[in-house]
Nucleic acid binder design. Sequence first.
DNA 1: AGACTCCGCACAAACGTTTGTGCACGTGGA
DNA 2: TCCACGTGCACAAACGTTTGTGCGGAGTCT
Lengths: 362, 362
Amino acid sequence: MPSPEPLKSGPITLRIVAEAAGVSISTASRALNGQAREYRISKATEEAVQRVAAELGFQPSQVARSLRLKRSGLVGVIVPDISNPFFSAIAREVSLGVEAAGYSVLLGDSREETTIEKRLVAQLQARQVEALLVCPVGLESQHLVQLDQSGLPVVVADRVFEDIQLSSVTSDNVAAGRIATQVLIDHGHRHFGVVSGVRESLPTRHRLQGIRQAMLANGLELDASSIAGDSYTNETGYQSTRELLGRHPEITALFAMCAPLAAGVLRALSDLGYAIPMQMSVVSIDDHPFAELMKTPLTAAAQNIEQLGRVAAEVLLERLKQKRAKDKTLSTGPGRGPVCHQVPASLLERASVAAPRPTSEF
Amino acid sequence: MPSPEPLKSGPITLRIVAEAAGVSISTASRALNGQAREYRISKATEEAVQRVAAELGFQPSQVARSLRLKRSGLVGVIVPDISNPFFSAIAREVSLGVEAAGYSVLLGDSREETTIEKRLVAQLQARQVEALLVCPVGLESQHLVQLDQSGLPVVVADRVFEDIQLSSVTSDNVAAGRIATQVLIDHGHRHFGVVSGVRESLPTRHRLQGIRQAMLANGLELDASSIAGDSYTNETGYQSTRELLGRHPEITALFAMCAPLAAGVLRALSDLGYAIPMQMSVVSIDDHPFAELMKTPLTAAAQNIEQLGRVAAEVLLERLKQKRAKDKTLSTGPGRGPVCHQVPASLLERASVAAPRPTSEF
DNA sequence: AGACTCCGCACAAACGTTTGTGCACGTGGA
DNA sequence: TCCACGTGCACAAACGTTTGTGCGGAGTCT
C-alpha cells in the first residue's frame, strides 16, 4: 500500500506533484517549464511529471511565481468611468491585446477624480503591476511621470498632458475639430456655438485649436463668449446649450465636443423646440452606436476608439518588452524616450447639418 | 559614519524599513499592522517605525502578503463583452463596491465564447482570486459550479442557469416580459413579432414566459413562428425583423429582447420604410442612455442595471465574508446554500407604441 | 585500474511577508 | 539572594515558486 494519502486536501502544489511523481520539487518545476533539456531531465521523468501534473490538475500559484520571478503578469488599467462606452471600448481592446500576450488586467475606476486616481495608482503599484495604462482624469500628471521614471512603464491615453514626458496615444484632436468645423462652414454657417469639455484638458484645447484653424482658414474667428461648458457630461451639454442660445441668438450651429455633451445638446434643443437640422445644425466629436438611429442622425468626427485601444495595447506591450530586456541586462539606460501616437479621426456625415436657416431679414 | 547605504535601490522592502528604524523585521511588521499592543511593542518603537516607513514611502508587497496570508485581495469579474454598456455598468458597480471593501478587480472579457470563459476562469483561479463574479456566456455552468464547490465563491449575474446551484443576481425577467407585453396589449395589439436572444438562455426563456403570461391573461397565444432570432446582436435584430415581417404581414408590433436587438429592429424598420409608431409599434427590454433621443423614443422595460450591479457586489462581499469566517473556523459546513436575488424591472413609456394601424379591410 | 566526463537528479537559497515562540532584561516580593 | 513575572523585542519558519550548484553513479579513455 502506498502512503495513506495524508489528506492535505489543500490546493495542489508543486510539492504534491513532485511527490506523486517521485521526484524532487526542482525537477518537477523544470519538467513543467520546458527546461528539461537544459537541466538534463530524462525524457521519461519529464513526461511522468507532466502526466501526473495533468492528472492532478496542477495549477501553479501565480502569486508564488510573481514573488519569485518579480513579475506579476498584471497590467493596470485606470479609466475615469468604465461605464462610459468610450472607455469601456478602450478597456476591451487593451484587455484583449494584453491577454493575448499572457497578461491579465487589473481594472480601476477613478470616477473622474484625481484623488481616487492617485489612490488607485498606488494600489495597483503595490500589487506589482508591470505596467499601467491610464486614461487620466487629466489635470495632474506628476504622480504618473514619477512612477514612469521610477521604472514602472506608464502609458496614458485620451486625456494626455501638455508637457508630455510619457508615452501616449490619443486621437488627432486638432484634425477632428478641424474637419467637423469644416462641414459646418461648407454648409454656409458663420456663427457657431461650441459646447466644450474640461477647458484645461489637452484634448479640449486641441479640438478648439482645430476649430479655430478651420475658421481662420475661412476668415472667421471664434470669440470666447461663443464657448460654454467645462466638463464632459450630458448635463453640461444641456445647460451650455441654453446658455449659448440665450447669449447668441445669431448662432446657427452647435459643436459638441464629445458624445455625452452631444446628448445634452440634443436634449436641450428638443426642449427648446428647435428642429434639427432645419433650425439648428449640430456636429459632434465622437461617434456612438445609436447615432444613426436618433431623431436626426448625428454628423460627427468620430474617434477611432478601437484603433486607439489597440495602439494603446501595442505601446503597452512594447514598453513591457523593453522593460524585461532592461531588467535582464541591468543596463540602466533611459530607454528611447516617450513615444506619442495619434490615431486619425474620420468624418461621418449624417443628417444633422444643413444650410443655416434664412436670417430674420429674409 | 553609518553604513554607506549599500545602494540596494530596489523597491523599499520591510527589511529596509526595519534596518533604517533599527528594529527587526517582525517588529516592523507588527508596528505597521496595528499589532503593537498585542505583541508589546513600545509606543516609541511603534511610532519610530511608522515614521521611517512613511519617509521611505514603504509600500508592502501585496504579492508577498498574498502568498503568506493566502488571500490575494482580488476578485475576478468575467463578462461576455466589456464594451457592452450593460456589462460595463455592472462592472462599474461591482468595481466600486469591492474597492470600497479593499479588494481590486481582475477583469476578463470572454467575447461571448464559452471556451474563452473557461480559460479566463482558470487563469483567474491561478491568480488566486478570492471570489468570482461571472456574467456567463450562458450555456455551460458545470465549470462554475465545480469551482464554487471547491471553495471559490462564484456568483453569476444576468445569464443565469436553470439548475441553479450558484448564488445569482438577475433582473425579474418574467416581469419585464410581462409588463412590456402588457403595454402592447393595452394599445390594442394582437399580433406580435418577438425578436429573441439566445433561445436556451434563461433570461430569454423567462422573458418569453412573461410575454406568454401577459398574452394568456388576455386570451392571446404566441406561436413559434412569431419568434425569430437566437443571439443578442444588432445584426440578429435586423435580420429577424425582416424575417418576421415577411412571414407575418399581420404583425403590428415588435418586441425586442435587449438593447442591441432593438437597435437592429429599428434599423430594419427604417430600411423597410415603416413609420414608428404609426405603422409599427416597438417595445424593448433594456433601456439605453440615448433611447429618448432617438427618432422615436423607445418604450422599454428597463432593467435596473446599477442596482443589479450593486446587489451583485453585495452578494460577492457577503460570500467573501462567509469564506473568511469558514477558513478561520476550519468548519467545512456547506454554507447557507445559494441565494438568488432578483431586481425589479420598470416600464419606461415613451413614444414607440401606439394603436395598431387600421387593417387593410378599412 | 584510475582519472575524467557526462548524465540525471536533489539540495537549498531566495523572493517579501506574517506570526508562533523564545530570550534577555528589569522589577517586585519573599 | 532567589524566584516569579512582565516587558520589549528578535529568531525562524512558512507560504509556493524558480534556479544556481552539488553530488553520486555510469560510462569512456588511457
